[in-house]
């Protein structure tokens, strides 16, 4: 029984249980030579009542935590090779007309359509691994099969990571502390090298470089975004990345998408931005709640993309010049 061995023996066997003890009010170092059973006996009834300590409940949560962590650690990196969307229906109830849509690892898919047409709902269907039980009636398959339950209910294994709209951090930490904290929550062992790699990649994406000692709250918009993307690409366990309507991100968008797919992710992005839309290998066109068509980006469109990118650069440089106080005489 887990409450009979000493706390230090418990931690030798299950080092990750330290997090549980610390977050549940037991100082693992202070009472190391005691068993949890004796530890609870040593607390008087008044304190137990005031602190809401219920030994039975404590031990049953600890057992659950240990068994979940063991299965988490024992798993070989769960690999998602493909994602399949089976048709549901439009808002009108009419059936969607595509037969099935399979997206492979390393693919980038953009999702376009008017506001309110159902882009976010499609992303929601994927995140929840829909089984004909969402408002669209769609079904999602992973590797061609019905998804495992864990994708819905496990907290450490989410199918989907999401890049938020927001460009700021709220935690009061340095870049290094922030990445360590994230690595720790993922039980990463080779922490230093992973942090190094994220920092390098983030600096490649951001215009101006930053160091690991920079407080995350003082990063610029572009730097924050670069760090968020590099961190999500490298540290997030989720195999699918959703990007919901992120426009002018102030970073190298092409490099960012390339980084995400080079880490073996599937990327889906709902967007109104023509550059992002054309960066996809394919784009899903949503209309009235349903998938209307799926278009493969053509050669011609790739040429057009380069032209739009040129135009975009020009606009960026005009913006810069205006900011510097110049008077424009030509485009």
């Amino acid at each position: 029984m887990i409450d009979q061995i000493t706390i230090s023996a418990l931690l030798d066997k299950y080092p990750f249980a330290r997090t549980f003890l610390e977050n549940n009010g037991v100082d693992p170092d202070g009472s190391g030579e005691q068993s949890l059973h004796d530890y609870f006996l040593s607390i008087d009834e008044n304190t137990k009542e005031e602190m809401a300590i219920d030994p039975g409940h404590f031990i049953s949560r600890l057992n659950e935590y240990i068994s979940q962590m063991l299965s988490f650690l024992g798993e070989t990196k769960s690999s998602v090779e493909s994602l399949t969307i089976l048709p549901g229906h439009y808002k009108t109830g009419e059936d969607e007309r595509f037969s099935d849509l399979t997206i492979k690892k390393n693919e980038i898919i953009s999702i376009v359509g008017p506001t309110g047409s159902g882009k976010s709902r499609l992303l929601g269907d994927i995140e929840w691994a829909a089984r004909n039980d969402t408002p669209t009636g769609r079904t999602i398959l992973i590797n061609g099969k019905e998804p495992e339950k864990k994708w819905r209910y496990s907290s450490s294994e989410k199918l989907v990571a999401q890049l938020s709209q927001n460009m700021n951090f709220v935690m009061d930490l340095s870049v290094y502390e922030f990445l360590s904290l994230h690595a720790e929550s993922r039980l990463i062992t080779e922490r230093e090298s992973v942090i190094e790699r994220i920092l390098d990649q983030a600096n490649l994406l951001a215009g101006e470089s930053f160091s690991k000692d920079t407080p995350i709250t003082s990063l610029s918009g572009g730097q924050s975004r670069a760090l968020m993307i590099a961190d999500t690409a490298i540290l997030s366990k989720s195999p699918i990345i959703l990007i919901d309507e992120i426009e002018n991100a102030g970073i190298d968008r092409k490099k960012a998408l390339n980084l995400l797919v080079s880490e073996g992710k599937i990327v889906l992005m709902a967007t109104h931005d023509p550059i992002l839309a054309l960066m996809g290998d394919r784009r899903i066109v949503i209309k009235n709640g349903g998938i209307e068509t799926i278009i493969e980006t053509t050669e011609k469109e790739r040429e057009i993309l380069s032209q739009i990118e040129e135009m975009d650069k020009k606009i960026q440089s005009l913006r810069q010049r205006l900011r510097r106080g110049e008077v424009l005489t030509e485009v």
Binding site: S164, N166, F169, V170, L181, L235
Partner: peptide, 14 residues
């Protein structure tokens, strides 16, 4: 979750 980053969401959830 819209106000924080993916990493902050993951750390908080853990």
């Amino acid at each position: 979750g819209d106000i924080v980053s993916q990493a902050e969401r993951e750390v908080f959830a853990s």
